[in-house]
């Protein structure tokens, strides 16, 4: 298992290789990566700065991972989330789940990113031609997370 909250970029191929190396019980891996888009709400975005709450962020991500492992039979889970200043095309987040079978890998990966978006304490500040603006939480994110309510 691994939770990493970092400013540095990550290499999806290297992470995938590390996750699966020598682990022949794994039958499938689902990877989700989130990227910075160059448009949001009709405005051009030239940069995005991610703020987080050190300590609570890791604690919440660990709790989300524990919940995923309670619900699905997972061989491994990896969550990497970046903070700091990012530009369009940059990677923000990676969620990877490994299991014997694809259903557990797909469903748990979707669950992790949906819960992460509503529970992990990160905030996005976008730079646009009209100045900086804090991204507002979306109702659609709440409903996506609510699908996984017990």
């Amino acid at each position: 298992m691994a939770i990493r909250v970092q400013a540095e970029d990550f290499d999806v191929g290297a992470e995938y290789a590390a996750l699966t190396r020598g682990r022949s019980s794994i039958g499938g891996v689902t990877l989700f990566s989130g990227l910075v888009r160059d448009m949001a709400g009709g405005a051009a975005v030239s940069a995005m700065t991610l703020e987080h709450y050190p300590g609570m962020t890791e604690k919440q991500l660990e709790a989300i991972e524990a919940e995923a492992r309670r619900r699905w039979p997972l061989d491994d889970v990896l969550i990497i989330h970046r903070y700091g200043r990012l530009e369009p095309g940059d990677q923000i987040v990676l969620v990877a789940t490994a299991s014997a079978h694809r259903d557990a890998a797909f469903d748990s990966c979707r669950f992790l990113i949906d819960w992460l978006k509503t529970k992990a304490p990160f905030w996005k500040l976008e730079a646009t031609p009209d100045g900086e603006r804090w991204v507002e939480a979306k109702d659609s994110d709440d409903s996506a997370a609510a699908r996984w309510d017990p």
């Binding site: 709450y53 989330h81 992990a120 905030w123 507002e136 939480a137």
Partner: peptide, 10 residues
């Protein structure tokens, strides 16, 4: 104690 807006990570 921490106060913050709704989170927007991911």
């Amino acid at each position: 104690v921490a106060l913050f807006p709704p989170v927007t990570g991911g």
